[in-house]
C-alpha cells in the first residue's frame, strides 16, 4: 500500500470541501476500502475520515425512520425500533459479513462497498470496473457468483450487500449532501447497472456525501423474511438472497415488496412479481408464480446458470417464510 495523507475534518462542510479532489476517498468503517487498498485495487492519495461527523442517529421521523450514514451495521441490526418496525433490515444486516465487521461497517459504507468479483480484486486480471477498457474477465471465465440480471457485455459483477437488498425492498430514500445542498433519491435508483460504465457503481457524485437513509413506515413488520443462500451457513457472500415483505390481511396480500441480492450490479427489485401478488392469497402456488415472473430477462453465463433455478426457488422460499407458511 502506498503512503497517503490522512485528514479528519471536523465538520460536514469540511468534508465536502475536500472530497471532490482527484485521488481522494472517504473512509468510514474501512472494512472494504482498506481491503481494496491492500490489494492495490484502489490507491488513494488522501483519505478523509468522516467518523467524527454527527451522522450516527437512528430516529423516527413523521413518515418513517431515519438512519444516519455512520450508524454501524451492528447497531442498526440491534436497534429496537428497527427490530420492531423493519425486521427485514435487521435480518439482512445480520446475514452479512461477521459480527466484527458489522461493528466497523457503516450504513453509508455498506452502500458504497464494491463488488467481490475475483477479477476486480486481482490487479493482474482484466476488469472493466477496475481498469476500464481491459475487458471483463468474468464473462467467459469463472462466473459462479455473477449477475443474471441487468449485466452488460462490459461487466457481469454483482453488488455484494445484504443490507442494500432490504433497503431496496423497503422503498428507502437515500439522503445525500453536496455543495449545493441536500438531495434525496430513491434507494432503488442509488445503485446503477454497469452498461458501458461499469467503473461507476452508483449515482453518487464525486463531491457528494451520503448522510443517511429513510425508511417509510409500512405494514410489513409481521411478514418479512430475508433468505440468503450461500456456500456455507455464515460469513459468506450470497449466491442468491431474497428480501420478502408482505402486508397480509385475512390471508390476502394487500401489498408486497421483493428484492434480490447476488444477481445484479445493484439490489434487484422485483416489481412485476410484487404486483402479481397484490390481491392474491398467500399461497405456495401464488408465490411460485411470482417467482417465475421475477425471472423474466434473466440470463446465465455458464458457471452461474444455476441461479436461473436457484433464484426463483429462493424467492418462493422467502415468501413462504414471510407468510409464515414454513
Amino acid at each position: 500500500m502506498k503512503q497517503f495523507q490522512y485528514v479528519r475534518p471536523a465538520t460536514q462542510q469540511g468534508v465536502l470541501d475536500v472530497i471532490n479532489k482527484p485521488g481522494t476517498k472517504i473512509i468510514a468503517g474501512g472494512t472494504n476500502l482498506v481491503d481494496l487498498m491492500k490489494r492495490g485495487v484502489t490507491a488513494p492519495d488522501k483519505l478523509v475520515d468522516i467518523n467524527q461527523l454527527p451522522l450516527k442517529t437512528i430516529a423516527a421521523t413523521k413518515t418513517g425512520l431515519h438512519i444516519g450514514a455512520l450508524a454501524l451495521n451492528s447497531v442498526v441490526s440491534e436497534n429496537a425500533v428497527v427490530a420492531d418496525k423493519h425486521p427485514l433490515l435487521a435480518m439482512a444486516l445480520k446475514a452479512g459479513a461477521s459480527p466484527q465487521l458489522r461493528n466497523m461497517a457503516t450504513v453509508g459504507g455498506n452502500m458504497m462497498q464494491r463488488t467481490r468479483c475475483g477479477y476486480f480484486y486481482d490487479v493482474t486480471m482484466p476488469c472493466n470496473k477496475r481498469a476500464p477498457g481491459t475487458g471483463c474477465g468474468a464473462i467467459e471465465g469463472i462466473n459462479r457468483m455473477h449477475a443474471i440480471f441487468g449485466a452488460s457485455p462490459q461487466c457481469i459483477a454483482v453488488h455484494p450487500s445484504d443490507m442494500c437488498v432490504a433497503l431496496a425492498a423497503l422503498d428507502a430514500t437515500v439522503i445525500v449532501a453536496g455543495k449545493k445542498g441536500e438531495r434525496r433519491l430513491p434507494f432503488t435508483e442509488f445503485h446503477r447497472l454497469p452498461g458501458d460504465h461499469p467503473e461507476l457503481d452508483n449515482h453518487l457524485a464525486k463531491d457528494e456525501l451520503i448522510t443517511g437513509v429513510e425508511i417509510p413506515d409500512n405494514n410489513f413488520a409481521k411478514n418479512s423474511y430475508y433468505l440468503k443462500i450461500r456456500d456455507r451457513q455464515s460469513y459468506a457472500f450470497a449466491l442468491v438472497s431474497v428480501a420478502a415483505a408482505l402486508d397480509i390481511e385475512n390471508g390476502t396480500i394487500k401489498d408486497a415488496r421483493l428484492a434480490m441480492g447476488g444477481v445484479a450490479h445493484k439490489p434487484w427489485r422485483l416489481f412485476d412479481a410484487e404486483k402479481s401478488l397484490i390481491g392474491k392469497k398467500a399461497t405456495e402456488e401464488n408465490f411460485e408464480h411470482a417467482a417465475q415472473l421475477a425471472m423474466r430477462g434473466a440470463k446465465g453465463y455458464g458457471n452461474n446458470s444455476f441461479k436461473l433455478k436457484l433464484a426463483p426457488a429462493t424467492i418462493a422460499e422467502a415468501l413462504k417464510h414471510a407468510a409464515g407458511l414454513v
Binding site: Y6, I27, G30, T31, V34, D35, K38, R39, L47, D49, N51, S74, S98, P99, Q100, L101, N103, M104
Partner: peptide, 27 residues
C-alpha cells in the same frame, strides 16, 4: 489473512470486537 476474512486479529476497541487488520491505527 490480513483482509478481514478470518477473525484471528480480533481485538476490542472501546469494548467492541473488530478486525484489527482492517483498522488503520490512526483511526
Amino acid at each position: 489473512c490480513d483482509h478481514g476474512q478470518c477473525g484471528a486479529c480480533t481485538v476490542h476497541v472501546d469494548g467492541h470486537r473488530v478486525n484489527s487488520c482492517l483498522t488503520l491505527g490512526i483511526m
